[in-house]
Design a binder for these strands. Structure first.
Lengths: 192, 192
DNA sequence: ATCCCTAGCTAACAGCATTAGCTTTAAGTT
DNA sequence: AACTTAAAGCTAATGCTGTTAGCTAGGGAT
């Protein structure tokens, strides 16, 4: 019988697709193996174990999310870039909720962990959006944390089904981004 | 030998204390039992299983969080109430990260699930803060979702160790709440 | 054609949630 | 005070999942 011909990347991709469908908390070696047409122990030839697999999903997610935000903001500036970045992130999280959950439960393992680099790069994609508002350098960190908190919070609450009221969620999202855009423009240097 | 004299509430409390220490993902029946000086199967006389236990922790968390926000905002209004509510929520999540994670991964089970009531009540505590800004009714929902997203996002990212830069996290938090307070006051009816 | 590395397999083990059935506590009754 | 009884807690056993050990055979290199 022929061989499956797997490698770590394929295993990671299959696992990522799985968690997007069934949720990160239901990640299991058995389901990943089944999806690849292989018996469970075979996976251990490519990944060190379930923890390692989860970590690899997180790296994949950080990379993809960072790229998505970067691509969306290409050639845009100011409020345009903010809207594009925000939409890109929300879209990514909705389409890949499992991967994103993996990303959030991952911690960098060592100083040369690829996850740290991927996460930093993703954060940089978001930070770039704020440069258009030329804020004080110290305010920039605060604004970045705020933006990140908001996008992360909104996306995860939405995916978890947390918004029950019948008001349209898309409307709330654009309202929120508009709110932030206005505030950031008002906070620009002519401070006092 | 004497009996332990447990009941569902005590088991839930012990489990909540456990997850606050070791993380919600490491909840296990064995550790809860050990903490109560009892063998694992004995727990099944009080809770239906691990899923039920997690659900009960979520109800506890929703109740406590709602109360904390409510207590903190007692007798305050406007920006004062907003700051108090925000601080109360962040403080609660930092002190009870495991419970809060249980809250976020819970879903209401039926129409008369106590979790739904507790969650609604907690949300109401937060919504009350916004009444001081007298916004348009439709904007109120948007603002509530924004506030919730932001507080949830900030708290969870902080607890997950997501804020690496050396800028003070407390400063970022107050900056963020100030930002929201300003924006909300500007959005008040004299719209146009 | 042969050699060798290793992907993938089967078998076995360990840990955890859960169930079945027993024992005995301790509360309530007479 | 003796007796009855619902259930708290225990031991033993089952099943599922992650993981390891050791074997087998596929397929590229020589």
């Amino acid at each position: 019988m022929p061989r499956a011909g797997l490698d770590p990347a394929q295993v990671t991709e299959a696992a990522a697709a799985l968690v997007d469908e069934v949720g990160f908390d239901r990640l299991s070696m058995g389901l990943v193996a089944e999806r690849l047409g292989v018996k469970t122990p075979s996976l251990y030839k490519h990944v060190a174990g379930q923890a390692d697999l989860a970590h690899r999903i997180a790296v994949l997610a950080a990379t993809q999310l960072g790229d998505a935000v970067r691509d969306a903001t290409q050639g845009r500036a100011g409020g345009d870039a903010l809207f594009a970045a925000a939409q890109a992130m929300r879209t990514y999280v909705r389409a890949h909720a499992g991967r994103y959950a993996a990303l959030n439960s991952a911690r960098p393992d060592g100083p040369d962990d690829p996850f740290a680099a991927a996460a930093a790069r993703a954060l940089g994609s978001l930070a770039a959006v704020l440069h258009g508002y030329d804020l004080d350098p110290d305010q920039e960190t605060h604004a970045l944390r705020m933006l990140r908190s908001m996008l992360h919070g909104f996306s995860t609450l939405e995916v978890a089904g947390g918004f029950q009221l019948d008001t349209d969620v898309d409307d709330s999202f654009t309202w929120m981004i508009t709110f932030i855009d206005r505030g950031l423009r008002a906070a620009t240097p002519p401070a006092h």
